[in-house]
């Protein structure tokens, strides 16, 4: 995976200076993560959370939604009750 691909996936534009700089920084990060591999993890179940917490639910009960005005208050662009975005070019849907 190179810096250009990452930038394109994240929808950001990078100058050639930035590309070089970020490539170096990402290299360091990957190197650091590589180090973690040397930790002894035998018999330890992989986890994505540090807290021993599981099964946190809510019941299927309605809570008030935002008003339409409040929902759209921070929108860069709107049209009546809708958020407005640049045109999507798919032929259908």
């Amino acid at each position: 995976m190179n810096v250009e691909t990452l930038a394109s996936l994240a929808r950001i534009e990078l100058s050639s200076d930035e590309k070089t700089r970020f490539a170096g920084q990402l290299e360091q990060i990957l190197h650091h993560v590589e180090k973690l591999k040397s930790a002894h993890t035998e018999g330890v179940e992989p986890t994505t959370h540090v807290l021993p917490l599981a099964n946190v639910y809510r019941e299927d009960q309605l809570r008030p939604s935002l008003s339409n005005d409040a929902a759209l208050a921070n929108a860069p662009d709107k049209d009546g009750p809708y958020f407005k975005v640049p045109r999507i070019i798919d032929p259908a849907s």
Partner: peptide, 30 residues
Amino acid sequence: GCSTQFGAGPNSQVCVVCLGFPGVLPVLNK
């Protein structure tokens, strides 16, 4: 906790969670 009712006015059943505001936490509906 926003309603799933079909046919309501546009953007009338939305909140900070389903609009993806920063810092909000999703909680699974049992």
